[in-house]
Amino acid sequence: MELIISNASSKPIYEQITGQIKAMILSGELAEGEQLPSIRALANSLRVSAITTKRAYADLEADGFIETVQGKGSFVSGGNAELIREEQ
């Protein structure tokens, strides 16, 4: 999973992360049940704060795109067909 963060963008970093992950889910690049990188691993690879990636994951979870399983990680939610239709 490759995300591109722009410091020059007017969008906050967490919104850039959220938008790119949503786009990957909607395009089918990230399949249902696929595990996402941990909050800390993603923060390290993007060189941003873990709080920033936590906010992005929280927003994605609130929107129903991902689900977090305590102790296991975050996964692309099942039953996204309705969400995908709504987003498109």
Rank of each mutant, 00 (worst) to 15 (best):
L30D: 06
T68R: 11
E87A: 15
I39V: 15
G64H: 06
E32H: 00
A23F: 05
S6E: 08
I84E: 08
V76Y: 01
G79E: 02
T68N: 05
A8K: 10
K11I: 03
V69T: 12
L46R: 08
I25F: 05
E29W: 02
P37W: 03
D59F: 08
E15H: 08
A41E: 14
S10A: 12
G79H: 05
Q20R: 06
R55D: 03
I13C: 02
R40D: 12
R55Q: 14
E87R: 11
I51R: 10
L3R: 05
R40C: 00
A58G: 01
E15G: 01
P37D: 14
L42Q: 07
V48F: 00
G19Y: 05
S6D: 13
N44E: 15
D59W: 06
L83Q: 05
T52E: 06
A31T: 15
I13D: 00
E15K: 13
A62E: 14
Q35V: 09
Y14H: 13
I66P: 00
G78H: 12
L42R: 02
A50F: 07
K54Y: 12
S6R: 12
Y14T: 04
D63A: 14
E82W: 09
F75P: 06
E15I: 06
S49N: 13
A43E: 03
K72V: 07
S77Y: 04
A43F: 08
F75H: 07
I84R: 14
L36H: 03
A56M: 06
R55T: 14
P12Y: 03
I4M: 03
T18E: 11
G71I: 01
E2N: 10
Q20Y: 04
Q16K: 06
F65V: 00
S74M: 03
L60C: 03
I21N: 02
E87W: 15
A58C: 02
Q20F: 00
A56S: 13
E15M: 12
Q20V: 01
V48C: 05
S38G: 10
G78I: 06
G78E: 11
T68S: 13
L42S: 02
S38F: 03
E86S: 15
R47A: 11
A8I: 05
A58Y: 08
Y14C: 01
F75E: 03
F65H: 10
S10P: 10
E29C: 06
L42K: 01
V48Q: 09
G28L: 11
S27N: 10
I25W: 04
Q20G: 01
E29N: 11
I66A: 05
E87V: 01
R55Y: 10
